[in-house]
Write a protein that binds this DNA or RNA. Sequence first.
DNA 1: CTACGCCCTCAAGCCACTTGAGGTTCAAGC
DNA 2: GCTTGAACCTCAAGTGGCTTGAGGGCGTAG
Lengths: 133, 133
Amino acid sequence: MRIGILAKAAGVSVPTIRYYESIGLLTPPARQGGQRIYASEDVKALSLIRHCRDLDFSLDETRDILASVQRRLPCSDTKSFAEQHLRSIRKRIAELRALEATMASLVSGCETTCCGSTAPDCVILQPGQVNCG
Amino acid sequence: MRIGILAKAAGVSVPTIRYYESIGLLTPPARQGGQRIYASEDVKALSLIRHCRDLDFSLDETRDILASVQRRLPCSDTKSFAEQHLRSIRKRIAELRALEATMASLVSGCETTCCGSTAPDCVILQPGQVNCG
DNA sequence: CTACGCCCTCAAGCCACTTGAGGTTCAAGC
DNA sequence: GCTTGAACCTCAAGTGGCTTGAGGGCGTAG
């Protein structure tokens, strides 16, 4: 199985596969005439990586998850990765919602207060306390 | 006014100021003995950049906003930057909420279904349709 | 004149890839 | 056997928005 077939099977681009190999996330496969030849197990491994990336785990986190799979560690380990990730997602959502509220109030403030003025005087651009981030 | 003073006045790090100059966001100031000397207007300019960054505008967007300020364009231009930014923030929030829902359901699925099993069999790691991103 | 803090430039590192240049291998058709 | 075209190879650089580090210069107070 050549790299292009693997790429389609796992839904990942060809350069990305080579990149994963270069950083040690995928083990280098056998070669024939200089070209990489993969086995069907590699589809599983790469699909798992793609799944982790779809869930927005970082590559470092993905590496840890792969290790826990290879060592057949208990499911509770997997769950704690997921829980920690969920916390960071929720934190990020809270930050973005604060930012959304700030932006929305600035836009409505511009509409009621300064529209018709020029950019340097616009309330949106007045440095003030921004409750976000 | 030397760079360290400007940095404190605008709440930005010294290397960041030099970086902004290197990409053409800040105009290079006068020099004395090789050292940058800033005027009080530069505090305003840099504070505006910081304000845009606090609102999570990209540096490219910030550059456009600065241009609209310098040209004294109407406030409506500023508002449309803000509205577009608000749309992208809301889109990002929606993506993250979908991801949050997916992760939360995987975690609870693990608790009810597979806890006590090992990582390779955990429902969290089963490649399936992930409704996010 | 020495010590210290602040300043300077240039280069590399972070993350997760993508893009491009320039060259090699493979499979199919004639 | 030869040619063509797709797929493969390596290596380097680019993306964003900085931060960090190395190695050195300037200014001022004691």
